[in-house]
Amino acid sequence: MPIPRRRTPRSGWRRSAPALTVAFTTAAAALASAAPASAATTIVNCPFQNLQSAINNAAAGDTLLVRGTCTGNFTIGKSLTLAGSSGATLNGNNAGRTLLVNGPTTVRVTLTGLTLTGGAGVDIGGGLFNNGATVTLRSSTVRNNTSTEEGGGIGSLGTTPLPGCTTV
């Protein structure tokens, strides 16, 4: 039996509104469940605190708020955010790559408001070497890094978006 047509478009909208509400509610619930419930923010005051220890102790999805200049060669192998406060710097001290991020492709690292400097890569990526992950640099600066082959500042075998960044 055919469904009778309504005279106004508004009545058709009302008829489909519950389905749209369910779709939006379901999508919102999926987004909420995708975010880690236990994500934490940890402040790391360099040079007095050890950034690599904070990286190692952080859970996937956490944020490390970096203050000051952290000197060393840092490695990240899980999804993290490193957010710099005013003037925060990661300095490789010309003793190796400043930051290495190891994949797989499911690893997502975001660097915001940081300067990466003083990196000396042996082959690729003196300041940052993205080895298969997704590393997003936002409003960051990569400068004064070297490499013996390619990518003195940034070397990437993954995805590396650079919104609002400066490379020198």
Rank of each mutant, 00 (worst) to 15 (best):
56 N>E: 14
164 G>L: 07
101 V>E: 04
50 N>K: 06
120 A>H: 14
110 T>H: 11
146 T>K: 09
80 L>M: 07
161 P>V: 10
41 T>Q: 13
100 L>N: 12
22 V>M: 12
160 T>F: 11
165 C>D: 14
101 V>R: 04
9 P>Y: 08
143 R>P: 00
12 G>Q: 07
165 C>R: 03
46 C>V: 01
37 A>C: 06
26 T>M: 14
1 M>I: 08
41 T>N: 10
13 W>H: 04
165 C>S: 15
167 T>V: 14
96 G>A: 09
119 G>M: 05
118 G>S: 11
125 G>S: 04
104 P>L: 00
142 V>A: 07
12 G>E: 14
140 S>F: 10
17 A>G: 00
152 G>C: 03
129 F>P: 03
144 N>H: 09
30 A>Y: 05
102 N>M: 11
49 Q>T: 05
125 G>M: 06
78 K>I: 02
25 T>R: 04
116 L>P: 13
124 I>P: 01
134 T>D: 00
113 G>K: 06
141 T>D: 00
134 T>W: 00
134 T>G: 01
42 T>A: 04
44 V>K: 08
69 T>A: 14
134 T>C: 00
104 P>C: 00
84 G>S: 11
164 G>C: 09
44 V>R: 01
31 L>E: 09
40 A>I: 01
48 F>I: 04
21 T>L: 15
10 R>I: 09
128 L>C: 02
62 D>L: 02
59 A>Y: 05
156 S>D: 10
144 N>R: 10
108 R>D: 07
79 S>M: 05
5 R>E: 13
52 Q>M: 04
63 T>V: 08
102 N>A: 05
19 A>W: 13
67 R>S: 14
50 N>T: 11
29 A>K: 02
24 F>E: 02
166 T>D: 02
151 G>K: 06
168 V>D: 13
140 S>D: 11
100 L>S: 15
82 L>P: 09
33 S>I: 11
120 A>T: 07
7 R>D: 11
132 G>V: 06
162 L>M: 13
33 S>Y: 01
145 N>Q: 09
163 P>W: 12
117 T>W: 01
23 A>Q: 04
82 L>I: 14
77 G>E: 02
38 S>E: 15
126 G>D: 11
139 S>P: 01
63 T>M: 07
163 P>S: 08
26 T>P: 01
155 G>V: 03
37 A>M: 02
103 G>K: 03
11 S>E: 15
